[in-house]
Design a protein around this nucleic acid. Structure first.
Lengths: 188, 188
DNA sequence: CCTTTCAGTCTACGTGTGTTGACTGAAATC
DNA sequence: GATTTCAGTCAACACACGTAGACTGAAAGG
């Protein structure tokens, strides 16, 4: 796809092309997973060329690593109630629209070990941080269940499209929110 | 792998070979997903030959379909409390050891559409059945959240190995059980 | 205006894959 | 014992993929 406008400089031209490639890669990796996404398909979706993708990103692995980097949630701290509130807010956002990069990483993690490492790192880091601040002997376990519920909701809604999870984020959180609160408090 | 014992009949010989292939397929599909599992690798793991796998199962797709057929849970019926009890028991079993076929289907579902259909069918069928018996306007939503929690726990434990989910099934269910019960009852 | 740089294109190579079909020898059948 | 069947083996095909490298033409720089 040769630019026809003569006003764009070479530098911004390259930046735009890279961005188009990354966007196409995120979408295709997110829809089809790592193995079924070919560099040729990414290039075509970006209106570009496979050779160019290689020149810019080095390899399919490196392209994936750049496309599927998960933006970290902010730090979650405070009392159990505050933590529950922050988790609920973060999960509401994830249910509304999970970033394409995270969806790509999540779908690919089941077949691509590096994607698995990416997701696990993003999740366990947050879990450990939370577990340290929750009361009770089984804090690690409860924060694990919070993580599982989050994972199940995001995967069930965006990737598997489970029955009943296509409601609005607010309706979903009206059910899931109290559960997270209980798990944070350690109901007894 | 030519049988050396002369006492086995041809019929049972074939049955045993097919079973070895299926077992190897389940394990490899479960470990590496659909695309990264090659017929050659399955054949070798089964001590057999790729051509023979093709002759017996027709194609990679059909082999996968046979290897990754999810054994259905029994019907879940009764009062909300009984339903919660049956769900808890079923989930405890899944956490203790999920059958290899189901794990293969779950790992593959994120890249192989037919596997996705298999898992979705197994889950939504049960969810609908449960939702019909639960009280409240949001029964479908709540049974969806139950499904998401189940999915998250099974995937988090067996596939992703999330922090805190490596506890015993009983410890996990001590936390997750009450949640399922609440969701079944429709806490107000 | 001449040279250099570089975005973009095209072709080709090597490899691994699913799949096919011919072949072999032992079990089954008569 | 002769013939048929069939489990198991082997070699090869066709294709798609990641990747490498040569090439083209316009922008950048002097």
């Amino acid at each position: 796809m040769r630019r026809l406008t003569g006003v764009t400089t070479r530098m911004e031209q390259r930046r735009r092309t890279e961005e188009r490639i990354l966007a196409a890669a995120r979408q295709l990796f997110g829809e089809n997973g790592y193995d079924r996404t070919t560099i040729r398909a990414v290039a075509e979706a970006a209106g570009s060329d496979a050779g160019l993708v290689m020149r810019y990103f080095g390899s399919k692995d490196k392209l994936f690593a750049q496309a599927a980097t998960i933006p970290p949630d902010g730090p979650i701290t405070g009392s159990p109630e505050e933590i529950a509130g922050m988790l609920t807010a973060a999960l509401t956002a994830k249910l509304a629209d999970e970033p394409a990069a995270a969806l790509a990483a999540m779908r690919a993690m089941f077949s691509h070990p590096e994607a698995a490492a990416e997701v696990r790192a993003a999740m366990t880091g947050q879990q450990r941080q939370i577990a340290e601040q929750l009361p009770g002997e089984d804090a690690v376990l409860r924060s694990g269940v919070i993580g599982a519920l989050t994972l199940g909701l995001v995967i069930g809604r965006h990737l598997v499209r489970l029955d009943g999870l296509d409601a609005s984020p607010e309706e979903l959180m009206a059910v899931a929110g109290p559960i997270i609160e209980e798990l944070a408090n350690g109901s007894g």
